[in-house]
């Protein structure tokens, strides 16, 4: 199981939980499992999200490995100028 931290406005779709646990070992699996367990998150996941894994921000790397002790934080899809 991986602990996934969600940003504030996503918590409306997880019964107010800031952190949820999913069975996943990659970036992609985290998103798939989140969407499955919390359908309210689906629109945001479809719009795009980034993910910080142990402090490093990944934008699209689906197969980035995640271990159970990793810090996983879902973030909005990052853009720049």
């Amino acid at each position: 199981m991986v602990k996934v931290l969600l940003w504030g406005s996503l918590r409306a779709h997880t019964d107010g939980q800031a952190e949820v646990e999913v069975e996943a070992s990659t970036f992609k699996e985290v998103l798939d499992k989140l969407a499955e367990a919390y359908p309210g998150l689906r629109p945001q996941i479809e719009r795009g999200v980034s993910m910080a894994i142990d402090g490093r921000i990944y934008r699209e790397a689906w197969f980035t490995r995640i271990s159970p002790e990793s810090e996983v934080v879902v973030m909005p899809y990052m853009t720049g100028g």
Binding site: L5, W7, A52, D54, G55, I57, E71, V73, M75
Partner: peptide
């Protein structure tokens, strides 16, 4: 005194490297 540093939990979620 208040600076974020390695190990700080960032206001946007992750822990800084």
């Amino acid at each position: 005194k208040n600076a974020a540093k390695k190990g700080t939990k960032a206001s946007y979620g992750p822990t800084f490297d």
